[in-house]
Amino acid sequence: MKNIVTLTIFELKKYWTIARIIVFGAIFAVISIVSLVPKFINLPLESVELNFGSIIQGSLAFFIPVLVLFFTGAIVAGDVRSFYLRTILARPILKYEYLASKYFFALINLLVGSVFFAIIPAIFMGLFYESPMKFDFFISLLTYILYIAEGSLFISISIWISTLLRGYTNIFILAIWIFLEASLNNGVMNSFVSYNVGLAIFADFFFPGGFSEASKLIESGGILFYESLMWGLAALAFFVALSFYQITKIKIDVNSD
């Protein structure tokens, strides 16, 4: 565990350059200002009942995939290219420890990023509106946890692809995967898929939006919520296992004599 902590701290140091901190700070400032626009222009929102859980659900659904794409570009392939992986593995470090540090790095960034880009702007909205915002701690927390779990699923897919393919290919494929998953589970293709048993099984297996589905079913609860949750957990376990298997096969460097 000590090695994983050391590697994760180094990963964070490596990633967070001054330039990146400034860019993320600027994005945070813009999002915060945007969340206050209705207040500045005196939009008559008194009649609208705001719900904290729904607001963070909307913003997390957008920001979680975006943040994962930001943080996991060439997450493993970049280390092969820069000879970082070789430097690390010349030390008494296991490939599993290296990969675990990648998961922790991405997860920490995702947690912090989602708080800054989704939770804090939602709190700003709640603070500055005249009419009180509906706030249910349990539902909000569960929504947040489910979206972080969804983010972890995206991270595991991104890491797995990055152990297989060069450069930033992982985030291009992940972006397509996320788009297809959203289309199959929510969008135009949903009704088409749900009427075809074969396609429905295919979609459930390969594009399991279990966690985001579960987050929409929190209030209604019931068996569908647990079913979606199980799909999400199964997919997460599958892709994490796949990435840990694939790391054993990875070519450590690009150099050859």
Binding site: N3, T6, F10, K13, K14, T87, A90, R91, N255
Partner: peptide, 27 residues
């Protein structure tokens, strides 16, 4: 085993001492 690579790892955000300290910790 100590290993000096012919292709050194370079990054913009890590200082020399921190890099050596990190490697030392890993060992």
């Amino acid at each position: 085993i100590g290993y000096q690579s012919d292709m050194p790892f370079v990054t913009k955000s890590v200082k020399v001492f921190d890099y050596l300290d990190f490697n030392s910790k890993l060992s």
